[in-house]
Design a protein around this nucleic acid. Sequence first.
DNA 1: ATGAAAGCGCTAACAG
DNA 2: CTGTTAGCGCTTTCAT
Lengths: 338, 338
Amino acid sequence: MRVLSGQLGGRRRPTIEDVAARAGVSRQTVSRAVNAKGEIHPETRARVLAAIEELGYRPNRLAQGMVTRRTRTVALVAGDIRNPFFGEVAHGAATELGAHDHKLLVMDTYEDAERELAALTELSHDVDGIIAFLYHSELADLEAVATTVPSLVVLNRDVPLPGARVLTIDLVAGGRLVAHHLIARGHRHLAVVVNATQAPGTGRRVSGFLAAAAEAGIEDVVQLPALPSMPGGREVGAELVGAHPEVTGVFAYNDLVAAGLIGAVRRAGLGVPDDLAVVGCDDIALASAWDPPLTTVRIDAEHVGAVAAQHALELLGVGQPAPSGDVFGVELVVRASS
Amino acid sequence: MRVLSGQLGGRRRPTIEDVAARAGVSRQTVSRAVNAKGEIHPETRARVLAAIEELGYRPNRLAQGMVTRRTRTVALVAGDIRNPFFGEVAHGAATELGAHDHKLLVMDTYEDAERELAALTELSHDVDGIIAFLYHSELADLEAVATTVPSLVVLNRDVPLPGARVLTIDLVAGGRLVAHHLIARGHRHLAVVVNATQAPGTGRRVSGFLAAAAEAGIEDVVQLPALPSMPGGREVGAELVGAHPEVTGVFAYNDLVAAGLIGAVRRAGLGVPDDLAVVGCDDIALASAWDPPLTTVRIDAEHVGAVAAQHALELLGVGQPAPSGDVFGVELVVRASS
DNA sequence: ATGAAAGCGCTAACAG
DNA sequence: CTGTTAGCGCTTTCAT
């Protein structure tokens, strides 16, 4: 007999069989009562429910999943849950999933190609659905994942994936908005922080920014690769000050990078926005509390998470259909950093 | 008799049986090769591994769990994953768990008593372990959870739970540090934001703060209940300005509350720290980017998450023993808001 | 309206 | 070292 470490008492968890015995019916009848499936006499049903209550019975999800092939679990695969943006997405998704008795699993990729694929591959066998912010996976790999997992929702990757939902945050527009804003304020020497984990010039927000700048006749935008985090922003801020003193306006990839960048720039003795205008992206809740309050591209992260979850659930045949449309709009929130 | 589903349409996921057939051995032998358990001839092992590779076999976690009674999943139950503090904890925990092939589930409680208990009860049947920031559960309920779930790690609740791990972040000391700091700077009229979801005067950080203030002869500390979020901080900031103009120093419960509070206070025309000194708690990564940079109680959230995960795993008999000791130290980081 | 039988895919215990 | 025998707890046919 095995002793389970950490387990206090010895009582075995009641099974459907125990309930059946107690109620004087068969397992199937209990199952019917629990799942409200198939015809069942109200009186029998009441007796079963009473037995369930008395015994404190809870269906074993594993056993259920074994036969239904569902785990009632959806995973969120994102760069780094420490980024409040993903925290907000996770919150929105978890809330929506919870309303339909599903749970949320989180997995960080660090936007690393290998980790991203490993996460998808591993999860695809263990969860009902995956909601993923993807940056590196090859289409062939994604197709394999889409075939394996019952429900796949891809954000930020405009790939053709039949059977999956491909949702887009309109960051091309976001990037354009930032460029227009900076140029309208008279800035001619621009820089943009690009995600160091991605190919140069790639990424929706960056390409939108570059396109709008080019249209305005500004072709020589400085591109600064950085990790999409506060430390990444610090490094790139120092570099900007040292190597590109002519730049007066920068699009900082996201709010975290903006925070680090602003700190570094000030430490070097320059002022924001006077010497350098800084614009972020995401509009995390705290962006308005900074010094200075951050100009940034607003994304309704919780809404994105909730809608992504709705799509995941719809693909699983649970809940109401998700709203139609596959692009989330963004807007520029002008505060004091630019 | 087996029903074959592979012939016509989509390819069926290979099972251990398929691998066994392909390698010309029994299921048990495949199992041994996969789990590196029991003696197995190296040559046989190689053949099995080859078959696994060719078929792209991955063990079904549900079926495994069915017999091992393990899901390889640990849950983090916390107030609100939108709070970057919990994001950092989640990241630390997920990283540690991932290193041992376990996954992290997240569930928010909003620090609501009912949700907290519901989360614990539901999860206790579905995961191997629970790491929980708890605020409301009765001891009897916790004992029931501890009995059900194989591994329970409780943070922030000093309750006797044999078989579980009860870890403490030394927020009593944190609260004392804040009081000493404020008093040393000459503040005599103090306020403290208390968690509106908890009983007044309760909570480690608050009681530490009040105790140290009392020892210094300050008994009439203003207590302001608020939700532990930025909106909560805004409300309480407005209230502070309107109803308690004599207060010159406030301990804001956590960094989010501090952010909201500072915003509200400024909007009312007062200066921080000149008119009001504000101290937060948690030291989330962004606290140093604010206006002004926030004085706060530093908690190494990622470390807390990682160590909590180590305890959870140790209770499950996985990985190395967690470090001894059950209290996480804190320190006061003095910046410019006080 | 209810029950009986047949597994889902895997591992533990015991043979050989 | 390897195979055989039993289930884990549940739902899905198919009877009755």
